[in-house]
Design a protein around this nucleic acid. Structure first.
Lengths: 325, 325
DNA sequence: TGTCGTCGTCGAATCGATTCGACGGACAGT
DNA sequence: ACTGTCCGTCGAATCGATTCGACGACGACA
């Protein structure tokens, strides 16, 4: 229709060779007239690039799903601004899904969400030789790009915050025990840092396991609060439990911060969804997603030249919502 | 490696022509040995099928995101069991995203989530001539496959439930006014059915608009409760508001069901995430997703032969959680 | 006037699968 | 022994883009 060869059209589209203004105009007109859109399959066959990133979301049985959502949305948005679409895979067998997507060439790269130590998806990723980035820190990170929150700094900040206000006896509610056992490194990275910091500065800190499913959550929290009647501070590191806390404290007649100072770790969105009024470390899922995708796309574009593989720990800032005294 | 032609391998894989056991064995061995996986791009180029469904998630500014998640998960799972992967698109300009995915042949079909009346994505879908299914009912459904909850039956059930218990004065909290204005048909389908049913059987029903963002939610609920002091029943049709309700009622010292009977409309998952103790119509996002995907894949496979286009309203069942008396 | 570079365009090869028609061999029926 | 089927396999065409080498036209320069 434009009276030129297909190669000329391709060059007009990609700009990889110069094109006379006249020809470019005719090509553009024809494209508009014919409503032409390049076929993704053909393009990916030829270029071995798809413009799609695989997002592997792992819903461990007892995962608190809304917490995952905070990551998914910013990731898809950031990816889009960089020209990528997101193929979301939520299968139980994440390793198999990853392999399938990678080997068949459906994706240019992979994002692994909520990675734990010993995560089978990590082995699968290593085996595919596809660019990938982990959100969540496993034990062995050799040759991997990893992004995670700096849970150690977060825990220290919260402990310091309470100590500065004069608290001498606080309770920490961690994720459930099986999250520790399963390899959720954020659980012990946070707890151990909190415990250590507390002992450094002479704070009595009682670390307890939380629960992640109702009705166990309520029973567990009641028990924890009953058993530490003298504690004046509460550090919540457990999404499902902190979501239930406001109602539970009301039931117990505990006023925050008058009777109890509460601090936690969650995102602004999470706080909004669950009307959480607590001073908290901002877990910055948006920033994490952005860093992860940026890193991944650079790895896709430049391979090993994009710099050394490594772990990026995102700094944690505290948002004061007035729940401490 | 198997000593056969490529076409034979293809037939061995697809089973579209018979293959001798001997040859099949050699092909399988070679495939395993070489770790061969068909290339998705090449396959989709040749067959014009991708094995991918586009999922268009629309986050209206004030959408309550966790509510959306209930739909996304079952959809990806159902799709997978039927052999499809999910390309998730969350862009603001959903119509553009839809067109891009469809025209470039990235997907075999489209799922539109949270469709409203006058939704620009519906026009875009019509323009592409791609199979698609809507979750959420627009005004004009000609030629479309639509799946939605039967909000009319749901509203009637809840009204009847309260009336049978002897309530004579109840309040309905609907979605925010701008959801009505914007074309969220579920909002008025539910409200109008409730109002009509109430008038049929002589129940005083005060319909109010809710809010969807804190802190407006709390102020709004307090106001609504203050202005209907004699109401003995509360019907909540508003995800964000009902999520805040348990805490708010505690603050007001209102006991459920002793002082107030509360019914609502949400899913089991939603109830779990937000510890909601109210008797409610089960909104069945899992079933809706399943029906939608099943319908879509049949449309993909059989086109217009898959039966007439139409709207499937999924029946709503009540789950008694003991919040009424 | 002849040579060389640059610019814009074209033709052909290529990516990796699927599928159609053809074809040779085995076997049954007469 | 001949014909006709059926079965298993192959070769070649095809899907729709990208890209490399080639080539003609044109201007610059000697």
């Amino acid at each position: 229709m434009a009276g030129v060869s297909r190669s000329t059209v391709s060059y007009a589209l990609s700009g990889k060779r110069s094109i006379s203004p006249e020809t470019r105009r005719r090509v553009d007109d024809a494209i508009r007239e014919l409503k032409f859109t390049p076929n993704a399959g053909a393009r990916s066959l030829r270029t071995a690039q798809t413009g799609v990133l695989g997002l592997l979301v792992q819903f461990h049985e007892d995962e608190f799903a809304p917490a995952m959502l905070q990551y998914i949305l910013p990731i898809t948005e950031t990816a889009r601004t960089l020209g990528y679409d997101i193929l979301m895979m939520t299968e139980n067998d994440g390793a198999e899904a990853l392999t399938r997507a990678a080997e068949s060439g459906m994706v240019d790269g992979l994002i692994l969400l909520d990675v734990i130590d010993g995560d089978p998806r990590v082995d699968a990723l290593r085996a595919t030789h596809q660019p990938g980035v982990l959100v969540g820190l496993p034990g062995d990170t050799r040759g991997l790009d990893v992004v995670d929150l700096d849970f150690v700094a977060a825990a220290r900040n919260l402990v310091d915050h309470l100590v500065e206000l004069g608290h001498r006896d606080v309770v920490l509610v961690s994720p459930p025990r099986h999250v520790f056992d399963r390899g959720g490194t954020y659980s012990w990275r946070f707890r151990d840092a909190a415990v250590q910091r507390a002992s450094e500065i002479g704070l009595k800190l009682t670390a307890r396991y939380g629960e992640s499913q109702q009705p166990a959550i309520d029973a567990n929290l009641h028990e924890i609060l009953d058993e530490s009647p003298d504690a004046t501070g509460l550090i919540m590191h457990n999404d499902a439990s902190v979501a239930a806390l406001p109602r539970l404290l009301h039931e117990r007649g505990v006023r925050v911060p008058d009777d109890l100072s509460v601090v936690s770790l969650y995102s602004r969105d999470f706080a909004r969804w669950f009307s959480l009024p607590y001073t908290a470390i901002e877990s910055s899922p948006g920033l994490l997603g952005k860093v992860a995708i940026t890193q991944l796309t650079q790895r896709i574009a430049h391979g090993d030249d994009a710099g050394p593989h490594g772990t990026r720990l995102v700094a944690a800032e505290i948002v004061d919502r007035g729940s401490t005294r």
